[in-house]
């Protein structure tokens, strides 16, 4: 495999949940490539399916309700969507790792940091106790935790929020994964700590040459650290492009509205902001056609709301869900 091929290729992925109210399609046929060694951002509001996308790739969907119904997830020559669960366990935490929003719920509260790191190592490699310790200390230093030896013997509750997130990053990276999926890694943190963590992820990415999928709702974070971006809305990717292109020339009405609605640091205080009317639709209210139509402030015919617009490459590496009304 050549080194320019994408590390991950997702094609027509459909993920659904079986609920009492019937089958709910959370991710509705999305396609994207994660370029090797780069940071790919997925941005969207709550309920748009960005986390479900991550859980589909790592096959961590809640069982038995969550199912991948169609499409493929190609990673290093294998289709993760159809991989048997035992093989997937060898990939997860080894080739692909994930970090989560709230480190306090993702770390085990009754085990020391050192024991949790050791578990991550021993699951994938046979290793002597001395090696485990050495690798753990080395990793703790890499994520810039002061006094690593002492910290290995501490429990998660003894650490601050930023330190916990560093421990989670250490656990995720200890087996040198090729792909790191970071699901809102800084949302629970203060801006100053957020900046530290984002810089840490970027530095380690450089050092280890891995690819990163960064999931966030914050367009500022996307603008600062990503190379390519997918904008998700109501279970679909509605626009995807390089980060400079997307911010300079957003094509879809939703992307444009989102970019205009954030208060800017250089805007005039106390002036009206451009707002997107209405609310983010719930999963039960997803339309078959253009899902942003009703909030776009542009008249959509019944046909536009009922026929799915094609996802097309509108210019080089700039993809958009081509609703003729929203992409004018």
């Amino acid at each position: 495999m050549s080194n320019t091929a994408p590390i991950l290729e997702v094609r027509d992925l459909v993920t659904a949940f079986d609920t009492d109210a019937g089958r709910m399609t959370a991710v509705d046929g999305i396609r994207f490539d994660v370029p090797r060694g780069k940071t790919f951002g997925i941005v969207g509001e709550s309920g748009c399916g960005k986390s479900v996308t991550a859980f589909s790739i790592t096959r961590l969907l809640p069982q038995p309700h969550g199912k991948i119904l169609g499409g493929s997830i190609h990673f290093e020559g294998r289709d993760l969507a159809s991989l048997p669960i035992e093989e997937m366990q060898r990939v997860r935490g080894n080739d692909i790792s994930m970090i989560f929003q709230e480190p306090m719920t993702a770390l085990n509260p009754v085990q020391t940091v050192g024991r949790q790191l050791a578990e991550a190592i021993l699951l994938h490699t046979e290793c002597s106790t001395a090696d485990v310790l050495a690798r753990s200390i080395d990793m703790m230093q890499k994520v810039r935790i002061p006094a690593p030896v002492q910290r290995l013997n501490e429990y998660p509750h003894q650490l601050s929020g930023g330190m916990r997130q560093r421990v989670m990053i250490a656990m995720a990276l200890i087996n040198k994964p090729k792909l790191l999926i970071a699901d809102e890694p800084t949302t629970a943190l203060d801006v100053t700590v957020q900046a530290q963590i984002l810089e840490l992820i970027a530095d380690l990415q450089q050092e280890m040459g891995m690819s990163v999928i960064l999931i966030t709702h914050d367009l500022g974070v996307i603008a600062q650290v990503c190379d390519e971006v997918a904008v998700m809305y109501a279970g679909r990717i509605i626009e995807r492009a390089g980060v400079f292109e997307l911010f300079a020339q957003p094509r879809h009405a939703y992307t444009q509205g989102l970019l205009e609605s954030i208060p800017r640091i250089d805007s005039m205080p106390k002036t009206q902001l451009k707002a997107i009317p209405g609310n983010v639709p719930g999963i039960a209210d997803f339309k078959p056609g253009c899902r942003f139509g009703e909030r776009s402030g542009r008249a959509h015919s019944a046909e536009h709301l009922n026929t799915r617009p094609p996802f097309v490459e509108i210019s080089a590496n700039h993809w958009v869900e081509n609703c003729p009304i929203c992409v004018a």
Partner: peptide, 14 residues
């Protein structure tokens, strides 16, 4: 320091 840490939503201002 606080102002410096704000992620600005403009990739040309990294």
């Amino acid at each position: 320091a606080l102002l410096d840490a704000i992620p600005i939503a403009d990739p040309t201002q990294r």
